[in-house]
Design a protein around this nucleic acid. Structure first.
Length: 337
DNA sequence: TATCGACGCCAC
DNA sequence: AAACGTGGCGTCGATA
């Protein structure tokens, strides 16, 4: 259509994905925004509105997922038929889908989330004083990062700091961070250098993790569960780099997965001891557990659920940071957040 | 009719 | 040229 294309794609075709269309929309191409709007609604209808109603079990009147305990390399669960671990929440219209998950009359849904668990685990595992201190004080971690890196906190620096924090967890690269922040790779590299300077444990963690994986072939979670990386010494640069990023992430994501599994294993026995054996644990969404229970039991159950989750690393692992839990209730899943 | 790869997008 | 981790699943077109 006369617009110069930014290449992409392994088939050589021009990409029309979200980032490309957002760029065009920002350059005054009206149809780009229209396509994005249409795509969002088409996605919500086909993947959620239509598919979830078709998945209702006629015997129970409910949607039942299947969990795989070996679905993810890192030890996370995966969910299929239907996947209930990717129900929309970020946009207002998407959140309407989540609100369609409702409790039975007289009951509520209770959602309990680990707050920033992977960043907390990174602070512990990499032994980063500034991050551990921030979590101990209950500070806004992205704001703290912004202040450390840029010397002040505003909307923009906090957003950048949040992106950088996530990039660290995922195995950072100057190109990936540059793309995300919309800056050249050398500027992204300068930010990475700055991050390592302010949080020196991170660079050490990355270095030691990679050295260990190259030597032994696997990484370990805090509980000793291994993930193997057979391509960590590949001669293929892209393959090797991909393995390195996964190897940096696996101990963090994997430890988080271990912790919530421990919480799940202890949850119902602990609730039963408190006379709350009728509480139903419905869903796990990586750092979140969803329960259904009589409205009148929520006040009694919430602190027990919180304690089981907060203490789930112990006694075998003693963390230097507290595990924060956010709990909400509502007549539907959307309002429980 | 079933399966696969590419593309795109939802979640954490 | 170049996407930073873990997944599942929709549509489309090609193929069996």
């Amino acid at each position: 259509m006369g617009h110069k294309g930014g290449k992409k794609g392994k088939s050589g075709q021009y990409s029309t994905d979200q980032s490309v269309l957002e760029g065009l929309a920002g350059s005054g191409v009206p149809i780009a925004g229209k396509v994005l709007d249409w795509r969002q609604l088409a996605k919500l209808k086909s993947t959620y509105t239509d598919a979830l109603q078709a998945a209702i079990n006629p015997n129970t009147g409910r949607v039942h997922t299947s969990y795989s305990l070996v679905g993810a390399q890192t030890g996370r669960l995966s969910s299929t038929d239907p996947n209930l671990q990717n129900i929309p929440i970020r946009t207002e219209i998407g959140r309407e889908i989540r609100k369609a998950f409702v409790a039975e009359p007289g009951n509520v849904l209770l959602a309990a989330d680990y707050s920033q668990i992977e960043l907390r685990l990174a602070a512990h595992m990499a032994d980063v004083p500034a991050l551990k201190e921030a979590f101990a004080r209950g500070e806004d971690i992205h704001a703290r990062t912004a202040n450390e890196m840029f010397g002040h906190v505003d909307r923009d620096t906090r957003a950048r700091a949040k992106t950088i924090n996530f990039a660290i967890l995922y195995g950072i690269s100057r190109w990936g961070l540059g793309t995300r922040l919309g800056v050249p790779a050398d500027e992204a590299q300068a930010m990475i250098d700055r991050y390592f300077e302010r949080f020196p444990g991170i660079q050490r963690y990355i270095h030691e993790t990679l050295e260990s994986v190259r030597e032994r072939g696997y990484s370990e979670t805090l509980f000793g569960r291994k993930t193997w990386f057979p391509r960590i010494r590949s001669a293929n640069q892209a393959e090797r780099a991909g393995s390195e990023r996964a190897a940096i992430n696996a101990p963090i994501q994997g430890t988080s997965a271990d912790i919530i599994k421990r919480a799940m294993a202890r949850m119902m026995p602990t609730l039963r001891e408190a006379g709350l054996g009728h509480v139903r644990m419905l869903l796990q969404v990586h750092d979140e557990l969803v329960f259904e229970l009589p409205e009148g039991d929520a006040a009694a159950a919430a602190p027990i659920i919180e304690r089981v989750m907060a203490e789930a690393a112990g006694p075998s692992v003693k963390l230097d940071v507290p595990l924060g839990i956010e709990i909400g209730t509502g007549s539907n899943w959307g309002d429980a957040h």
